[in-house]
Amino acid sequence: MPGLSAPGVTTEEQIRAGFRAAWLLARGREEGLRFTLLSMEGTARSFWAAVFCLLPFLLIRALGDGSAFSAGLPVELIGYSLGWTVFPLASAALVDASGRGPLWPLFIAAWNWTNLAQYAALLGATLLNPLLPTGFGGALTLVAFGYALWLEWFVAKSALRISGARAVIFVVLDMMIGLFIASVVARLSLA
């Protein structure tokens, strides 16, 4: 994809490149980073991934516990939006502290686009769960979740050019933020 960092690249071109980045990174191929823009514009446009992940999110929620279509839907959608914004904001300070500040736009763009692969894996496990013998569905969901964690670790390590141990810190930060948001959403949905 020529000139992705050049001015004048359309949103459509960046979205196509983002899907390509997700496909390559999901398979553990660092060259997927070439398809994300190392600019704030590229990072901003990478949030289109949230739009493409909304349907899988709603399907996972509906198939899991039916909450996607309950009275708590507005709260679920607020939680979904927070999940896409809080981690990027929180990670900026951590990236700066690790001396990798200029790579933050690349990291967040790659993180956003690889959410496509993570949601695809989780949706696949959710869809297959009822078709599998007892215990296998849960194991498949655990494998999909493990894959999602590995992918986030791989993106942090590759995009920020840090060690695997340091990349774990970003995964833990995202998990802590996600668990906090999920707990608040659960409490507000019951209220």
Rank of each mutant, 00 (worst) to 15 (best):
G3D: 12
L4T: 07
P7W: 04
P7T: 09
G8K: 04
V9D: 01
T10W: 07
E12A: 15
E12V: 14
E13G: 06
I15C: 01
A17T: 05
A17P: 03
R20A: 05
A22W: 00
W23Y: 14
L25G: 00
L25H: 00
L25A: 00
A26N: 05
E30A: 15
E30G: 11
G32W: 00
G32I: 00
R34K: 07
F35R: 00
T36M: 12
L37D: 15
S39Y: 02
M40A: 09
E41H: 07
T43A: 11
A44H: 09
A44T: 15
R45F: 00
S46C: 02
F47S: 03
A49G: 15
A50Q: 02
V51H: 04
F52A: 09
P56G: 08
P56S: 08
L59E: 08
L59Q: 07
I60W: 01
R61V: 10
L63G: 03
L63F: 12
G64R: 08
D65T: 03
D65I: 02
S67A: 11
A68H: 02
S70N: 06
G72C: 04
G72T: 07
G72L: 04
V75E: 05
L77T: 05
G79Q: 04
G79F: 00
Y80R: 00
S81G: 15
W84L: 03
V86A: 05
F87T: 12
P88T: 14
P88V: 14
P88A: 13
A90K: 06
A90D: 07
A93Y: 14
A93P: 11
L94R: 14
L94M: 15
V95N: 05
D96P: 10
A97C: 10
S98Q: 14
G99A: 05
G99W: 11
W104G: 02
F107Q: 03
F107E: 01
I108V: 15
A109I: 06
A110T: 08
A110P: 12
N112H: 09
T114S: 05
Y119L: 04
Y119V: 01
A120S: 12
L123E: 01
L123A: 02
L127P: 12
L128R: 07
L131P: 01
L132Q: 01
T134H: 06
G135D: 01
G135R: 01
G135P: 00
G137L: 03
G137T: 09
G138I: 13
L140A: 05
T141Q: 14
L142V: 14
V143Q: 03
V143W: 08
A144E: 01
F145I: 11
F145M: 12
G146H: 10
E152I: 10
E152G: 13
W153A: 06
F154N: 02
A156V: 12
K157D: 10
K157Y: 08
S158Y: 02
L160P: 09
R161K: 14
S163W: 05
A165W: 11
R166C: 02
R166Y: 09
A167F: 08
V168I: 15
I169H: 12
I169Q: 12
V171G: 07
V171P: 08
V172E: 11
L173P: 07
D174V: 09
D174C: 10
D174S: 15
I177Q: 08
G178S: 13
G178E: 11
A182E: 08
R187L: 14
S189A: 12
S189Y: 03
L190F: 10
L190I: 09
A191M: 15
